[in-house]
Design a protein around this nucleic acid. Structure first.
Lengths: 145, 145
DNA sequence: GATAATCTTTAGCATATTAGTCAACTTTTT
DNA sequence: AAAAAGTTGACTAATATGCTAAAGATTATC
């Protein structure tokens, strides 16, 4: 049930960019986020292609947010960087992968519930929520049965 | 955010065993769950060492549940078979792994929330719940802010 | 007690993923 | 022109995953 470094690193970079309105060179992002420069380049490039950031070349170049923090949905970033949020292919909406057992599978409801829960959580969190440190425990939290 | 086949297969086997009160040979479990025999042997062995099942050797041998379905907590099975439920080491209770950013990390609250949510879900589901197909969407579902 | 079914255990392998490095190249600014 | 900075792609090392092979140990039944 892990999130890979790629997603984590991307979010770190986005947070840093969200905290500063100006262009920041990769080297500085790397320092502040503790992500190796060369690896970070790949990730920033991908974020650029996805439209989250834009880059400026040359002597005072670097990266800057393209979308506003309210428009950047964490769930989407993670999905785009490291694949479906679903724990199993059989319950993935973005990468459905059928399974021969499916019909009478007693596990599917559980995987579905997990998928829905995690998805709901991440789809309703934006970069802005993170920046404002507004993540909190939902009120009437999870109850089964 | 994937669950590996190992956890999935273990649960499939436990479900099958939970559905039958008698000893079932590996070959039959393999057929019914669609898991390769040799791989299944490893997994059942691990489940045996963990105390979930017991085995009977010889000509009418096979596997049978050791604990009752109510006592088998899905979250624990998954954790024991494939490691911590937490999405990141920095928020894992069973395998905490510090991170230099931690203090001012704006991501940690999010990871914590995910960990707590998934954990709560899986820790409150037993094999019995699966057998009775009683997994359902929690009432006052997730709300952020 | 032989034997056949079954469990037990170890070793190994192929593939995929992850994390990261390196180096050459292009663009832009000064 | 030169320097700073982004762009790109190839390449590597480590690890995890999914699975196979095979030899050995145990036990129920005849």
């Amino acid at each position: 049930m892990k999130v890979s470094t790629r997603g984590e690193y991307a979010l770190r970079a986005l947070i840093l960019l969200g905290q500063h309105p100006n262009v920041i060179p990769i080297a500085e992002i790397s320092e502040k986020t503790l992500v190796p420069v060369n690896y970070l380049e790949q990730i920033l490039l991908q974020l650029k292609h996805l439209g989250y950031v834009k880059s400026k070349r040359g002597i005072r170049g670097g990266y800057i947010l393209r979308k506003s923090p309210e428009q950047i949905v964490i769930g989407q970033v993670i999905r785009q960087l490291e694949g479906p949020l679903a724990p199993m292919g059989c319950v993935s909406v973005t990468a459905y992968d059928p399974c021969p057992l499916e019909e009478k599978c007693l596990l599917k409801p559980l995987w579905t519930l997990i998928r829905d829960t995690v998805s709901q959580l991440l789809e309703n969190t934006t970069l802005n929520d993170l920046l404002e440190d507004q993540i909190s425990i939902p009120e009437g939290s999870m109850k089964l049965k």
